[in-house]
Amino acid sequence: MSENGSGSGSENVSAGRATVAVVGGGYGGAAVAKALDGGTDVVLIEPKDAFVHSAGALRALVRPDWAANMFFPYDRLLSRGRVLRERASSVDPGGVTLASGGRIDADYLVLATGSDYAFPAKTETDSSAEALRRLRVAYDELTGAERVLILGAGPVGLELAGEIRAVWPAKRIVIVDPAPEVLPGFLPEVRADLLRQLAALDIELRLGVRLDEQPPGEPGRAKTFTVPTTPVGDLTAGLTADLTADIWFRCHGVRVNGGYLGDGRLTLPTPKGQVRVTDTLNVTGPAGPYAHVYALGDLTDVAEAKMAGHAMRHADVVARNILAQARGERATATYLPSPVPSALLPLGPGGGVGQLPDTEGGAGGAVPVPAPRVAAYKGADLFVGRFAELFGTA
């Protein structure tokens, strides 16, 4: 039975079975812990009081009645292993030192601490109750704002705009980004469909534009302001006017959660703060790859977009390798990132665009996903049902 609590002293779970310490209980960490639970002794180290389904955060902002659906308690995730509500302060080849001063010795280590992102895409707190309170405050502020400014035209900014429009048809929504195009690397027809849907939703997209100064006040707090803008590159027509809004949100800037690696006892992160891994997702240290230490998800230097789906596929590879090693076999499972970008990007519950690898054509290309399929696959419930099964709350 899994349990919440704090570790103290040096401990191992049981004799005769491999002990796996998983640092981080997000998408990849929770998935790998669940997969390893039957064949090893798993200790999942996670400071949050519940798993946060961050893909639901933007809908939680505009639908307070729905917001609780993005939190899943850890108490049913593991049947044999346990969950320590702790934070790692350091990791070395032999185990994890906890912020409380305790230590978990382990035969295998999995680093799965992911990344942080600006509110509301990430909740920025370890307490689910506090996260819900912050979302409710931001909802109240957003309710009274007539003009909304979103900084960043990536998937997060686009999805936030769609969620706001689904609840408030009359608000003016402007998305600003200095990039010259939206969804670079995606099929032209996918980008064209996105632009068509944004126009139909009356969401204004200003590309090739930067703000001359940051909006005053905190993101997610109502305060009317006007900021000047400057065109970037050749996209100059009609883009030099001042921009006035009543509330703004930052939808860019990922921060990798790897501070506990700063002492260099295990590995030295890249300049981006990521961990170098092999194709088997083993962490590379000063003397080469560790056979018993793995990393997955946003923390890794795998050359792909940092997405929950990728982290969960990493988890499958890591779990297969550790289980093989625990049986005395070689770790042979490898991860090969897709050569084409993929995403399902809802624009509210009923719209959106998508692109997935072409698994049937044989040419290694991509295929577009139309709005009805995006809504059916993701937009309708944002995969809540899938995570209810993972966490035993279905």
Rank of each mutant, 00 (worst) to 15 (best):
S2F: 15
G9I: 07
N12C: 08
V13P: 06
S14K: 06
S14M: 02
S14H: 04
A15Y: 11
R17C: 05
T19V: 05
A21I: 09
G24Y: 08
G26A: 08
L36W: 07
D37K: 02
D41L: 01
D41A: 04
D41I: 02
E46M: 01
K48Y: 05
F51R: 14
S54W: 13
A60N: 10
V62A: 07
A67T: 15
M70N: 15
Y74L: 12
Y74E: 10
R80K: 05
R80Q: 04
G81K: 01
R85F: 01
R85I: 01
D92C: 02
G95E: 03
T97K: 02
A99M: 04
A99W: 05
S100Q: 10
D105R: 15
D105C: 14
A106F: 01
A106L: 06
Y108K: 04
A112D: 11
T113Y: 00
D116W: 02
F119Y: 07
F119L: 09
P120V: 12
A121V: 06
S128M: 12
R133I: 00
R133N: 11
L135A: 14
Y139S: 06
Y139M: 03
D140W: 10
E146H: 13
L151K: 01
L158Q: 10
E159G: 11
L160E: 08
L160K: 08
A161E: 13
G162I: 13
A166N: 00
K171W: 01
R172I: 00
D177T: 13
A179N: 08
E181G: 11
E181S: 13
P184C: 07
P184E: 05
F186L: 10
F186D: 12
E189Q: 07
V190H: 15
R191A: 12
R191G: 12
Q197Y: 13
A199R: 14
D202T: 14
I203Q: 15
L205T: 10
V209D: 06
V209H: 04
L211D: 14
P216V: 00
T224Y: 00
T224S: 06
V227Q: 02
P228A: 00
T230K: 07
D234P: 09
L235K: 13
A237G: 03
A241L: 05
D242Y: 05
T244A: 04
C251L: 09
V254S: 13
N257T: 08
D263A: 12
G264F: 02
R265K: 15
R265G: 15
L266Y: 09
T270G: 06
T278E: 04
N282F: 03
T284I: 09
P289T: 15
Y290Q: 10
Y294V: 11
A295L: 13
A295V: 14
A295D: 10
A295T: 13
A295R: 13
A303S: 14
E304F: 03
M307A: 06
M307W: 02
A308W: 02
A308L: 02
A308H: 01
H310A: 07
V317P: 09
V317F: 08
A326T: 01
A331I: 05
Y335H: 15
S338G: 04
P341R: 04
P346T: 14
L347G: 08
G348P: 07
G351I: 03
G352V: 14
V353L: 12
G354T: 03
P357S: 00
D358C: 05
A363F: 13
A363D: 14
A363W: 14
G364F: 07
P368K: 11
P368G: 13
P370N: 12
P370Q: 11
A380F: 09
V384M: 04
G385N: 02
G385V: 00
A388S: 02
